[in-house]
């Protein structure tokens, strides 16, 4: 077993400008490497890396951090996923879904190497971290030839293994806006029988900001049921500014399933996925609701 690439060069730039220049210079033959757990294995879920001959290692760019800035929580792109689990910043109500997703992601060993930025940039339709981050209304900071700019995560995913990053652009940071403590959040992942480590059949993150039983804002993010992770906005819409009840949650769950567009693959059929999307959204919303009351 050996590496899939025919590498011509490997760079470990010290500055962001060097990194961007290298990416621009080598175009489609270059790829950013952080943890490497998605791009080094031979088998790829849909991604074609045959043309890659240059790897740009971003581990010297100081992107390994979790910090608070201007009331927001910021995660450096090359922060490994296990760091999310241990970071105290996320051990409060609104961010529980992020911890749950991090713990549901692969295995402890892989999470030592795999990075938060990598999970987003790989843009797998079943990426676990994407969902709580979508539900938290996160945005990403991108460095590029024209300087830095910000993209709402909601518009970041363009298709399987395809993002809004343009040539020469690198993901720098994920910014999570501040959320009130009365926000309830949860992440649920449905896997095959018996297994605790597997890619999702369906995964869901929800978030509810409540005032008593009045829902001020609802967010529902779904994965593995479409070409990208996405926010089910219609479903969330019927919850906003409403008094929550079980029936309303069920309606929202059905609506969220309607917004999904799953396919058949070797994990499940489209029909089962759609049905499960409704079940998971319902369960997640109920959980988030319950948590918001604590």
């Amino acid at each position: 077993m050996s590496l899939q690439y025919n590498l011509e060069n490997y760079y470990k730039p010290e500055t962001m400008k060097q990194a961007v220049d290298l990416l621009l210079k080598f175009g489609k033959t270059a790829k950013v490497i952080a943890g490497g757990t998605d791009i080094l294995p031979k088998r790829q879920c849909g991604a074609q890396f045959d043309t890659i001959t240059h790897l740009i290692d971003i581990s010297n760019l100081g992107l390994n951090y979790i910090k608070e800035s201007k009331g927001n929580l910021c995660i450096g792109a090359s922060t490994n996923i296990n760091s999310l689990v241990t970071a105290s910043a996320f051990h409060s109500n609104p961010y529980i879904g992020l911890i749950e997703a991090a713990e549901a992601h692969s295995t402890n060993t892989i999470r030592n190497q795999a990075t938060v930025g990598g999970n987003l940039c790989n843009a797998s339709p079943c990426a676990d971290l994407a969902l709580p981050l979508l539900a938290l209304s996160a945005c990403v900071v991108v460095a590029g030839p024209k300087g830095n700019h910000t993209i709402q995560l909601d518009t970041f995913f363009k298709g399987p293994n395809c993002t809004a990053l343009l040539p020469g652009e690198i993901l720098l940071e994920i910014i999570i806006p501040n959320h009130q403590e009365t926000t309830g959040a949860s992440f649920i992942k449905l896997r095959h029988h018996q297994t605790e480590v597997d890619m999702a059949v369906v995964n869901v993150a929800t978030q509810l900001l409540l005032d008593g039983n009045n829902c001020l804002r609802a967010m529902i993010a779904l994965g593995s049921v479409g070409p990208t992770s996405f926010l089910a906005k219609k479903a969330a819409g019927i919850l906003s500014r409403q008094t929550l009840n079980k029936k309303l949650i069920e309606q929202a769950a059905m609506l969220a399933a309607d917004e999904s567009a799953p396919i058949d693959d070797n994990r499940a059929t489209a029909g089962y996925r759609k049905e499960m999307a409704a079940v998971l959204v319902k369960n997640s919303l109920e959980k988030s609701w319950e948590r918001s009351r604590k």
């Binding site: 490997y10 757990t37 080094l40 295995t107 190497q113």
Partner: peptide, 22 residues
């Protein structure tokens, strides 16, 4: 491919997979 863990080593004190690292 990083799935089986037979190549697990310790790198700077952490368990990592030697097949998923150049």
């Amino acid at each position: 491919e990083g799935e089986c863990g037979a190549c697990t080593i310790n790198l700077n004190g952490k368990a990592v997979l030697a097949c998923l690292m150049l």
